[in-house]
Amino acid sequence: MKLTILQTGEVPLPLRSRFVPYRKMFEAMFDQTGQGFSYETINVAEGEPFPDLARLEGVVITGSAAGVYDDLPWLEPLRDFIRKGYQQRTPLLGICFGHQIMADALGGDVRKSPKGWGLGRHTYEVTARPGFMPQAPSALAVACSHQDQVLVPPREAEVILASDFTPNAGLAYRNGAALSLQPHPEFADDYTVALAELRRGKAPDELVDSAVSSVAMPSHSADVAGYIGRFFKER
């Protein structure tokens, strides 16, 4: 199965000499599932044309420094692509910004949260168990890095992951072929720490310190990657 990665952002410039590009993080995550995926990447944020939905087997929308409310030329075409893909039941996955733009395109409300930065490893309650994650534990700990949140999910979405900080952290859509997550199962611990440290001066030092120490908590990223792999394979 080929996954088409729609690149909407990239590793921040100060970190690029130390870490692989986002597309490589996703490829490594999916490779670890053992599902035999292949990949192509289309950098829509840099103006590369959107692919023909009719030829796609699965789509991944990456994280980004952009917000859904920004005035960027590629955002409306991305919304249109998401709506058409949803109608055609093309398997769609959104992570972080991808989660937000999917919710925005399909009728949700996405804004900068008054709660501020979410950094480090957060723990999310599993509030529903779709068919691709029937044995999920009661909670999952996964890395995150965001200010924006889905404040109101679309009517078509069921909340599957939630926390006090991020009540709509995971959404499974009722067409059976769309899934989105606020946290980043593709992030390795060293990148999670580096990204948190990069926010020092923008986020309070106490929050950054807590984010850095949070990676000592056991991670469920590999489990979440497995759920996502099954989501695509079962579609």
Rank of each mutant, 00 (worst) to 15 (best):
G36R: 05
Q32Y: 11
T127E: 06
Q87E: 13
L13W: 10
F132Q: 08
I61F: 15
V212S: 03
L72K: 07
L92W: 05
A162M: 02
D70M: 04
A178M: 14
G201V: 09
K202L: 13
A216F: 00
I82S: 01
A178P: 15
L171S: 10
A162W: 01
T8I: 12
Y191G: 11
P204M: 00
D190Y: 02
Q100L: 01
P137M: 05
L13F: 08
D223P: 02
V44Q: 10
H99V: 12
S64H: 06
L56Y: 08
E10N: 08
Q87H: 13
E27F: 05
A211N: 02
V20A: 14
D189V: 00
D70T: 04
P185E: 14
Y191H: 05
L195D: 00
F19H: 02
S64D: 10
S145D: 11
A105D: 13
T62N: 06
T127D: 08
P204V: 03
Q88G: 02
W117R: 02
Q35F: 10
A178Y: 12
A45P: 07
F232W: 12
K202F: 09
T123M: 01
E197C: 06
P154Q: 06
A169R: 09
R79Y: 12
L161D: 03
H184T: 10
E156A: 13
P12G: 04
H184E: 07
P134R: 08
V20R: 14
L78S: 01
L207I: 15
G229N: 10
A216R: 02
R16G: 15
P51N: 10
V152S: 11
Q182I: 10
A105I: 12
G34E: 11
S213K: 11
V193H: 03
P130D: 07
L151E: 14
W74F: 08
S17L: 15
Y22E: 03
P73F: 02
M29R: 05
Q35Y: 08
V60L: 15
V212E: 04
P51W: 12
Q35E: 15
T8N: 05
